[in-house]
Simulated assay, not measured.
Amino acid sequence: MKKWMLGLLLTVVSIFALSACGDEGDKKADANTSGSEDGYESTTIRLAYNLPQDHHIAVGIENFAKEVVERSDGKVNVQVYPAGQLLSDKDMNQSILSGGVEMGVNSSTLWSSTVPAMGVFDVPYMFNDYSAVGEAVNGEFGDKLRGAMEEKGAKVLMFADYGYVQFANNKRKLTKPEDFKGLKIRSIGDLPSELIQAYGASPVFMGGGEVYMALQRNTVDGATSGTTAMLQRKYDEVTKYLTVNNYAYLEFLLAVNKDYWDKLPEKTQDLLTEVAAETETWIREQAEKEDTESAKALEEKGMDVYYVPEEELDVWKEAAAPVRDVFIENAGDLGKELLDLIDKK
Score class of each variant (00 low, 15 high):
Leu6Met: 10
Leu8Ala: 14
Val12Thr: 05
Val12Phe: 11
Ser14Tyr: 03
Lys27Met: 14
Thr33Glu: 15
Ser34Met: 14
Gly35Trp: 11
Ser36Gln: 13
Asp38Ala: 11
Gly39Trp: 10
Tyr40Pro: 06
Ala48Met: 07
Ala48Leu: 02
Val59Arg: 05
Glu67Ala: 01
Glu67Leu: 15
Gly74Pro: 07
Ala83Trp: 05
Gly84Ala: 11
Leu86Thr: 03
Ile96Thr: 10
Leu97Glu: 01
Glu102Leu: 14
Val105Asp: 10
Ser107Ala: 13
Ser108Phe: 04
Thr109Cys: 04
Leu110Lys: 09
Trp111Pro: 02
Val120Lys: 04
Phe127Lys: 00
Asn128Glu: 07
Asn128Trp: 01
Lys144Leu: 12
Met149Asp: 02
Glu151Phe: 09
Lys152Asp: 02
Val156Asn: 02
Phe159Gly: 06
Ala160Gly: 11
Ala168Asn: 07
Asp179Arg: 14
Lys181Pro: 05
Ser193Ile: 05
Ala198Ser: 15
Ala201Thr: 05
Met206Ile: 07
Tyr212Lys: 10
Gln216Cys: 04
Asp221Phe: 10
Gly226Arg: 04
Thr228Phe: 01
Lys234Gly: 00
Glu237Trp: 06
Asn245Ala: 12
Leu253Glu: 08
Ala255Arg: 11
Asp259Gly: 08
Asp259His: 02
Asp262Lys: 11
Lys263Leu: 10
Pro265Gly: 14
Pro265Ile: 15
Val275Arg: 07
Glu278Asp: 09
Glu285Thr: 06
Thr292Ser: 12
Glu300Trp: 04
Tyr307Thr: 01
Val308Arg: 07
Glu312Ile: 00
Trp316Lys: 02
Trp316Pro: 02
Ala321Pro: 06
Val326Thr: 15
Phe327Trp: 01
Phe327Thr: 04
Ala331Glu: 06
Gly332Asn: 13
Asp333Trp: 04
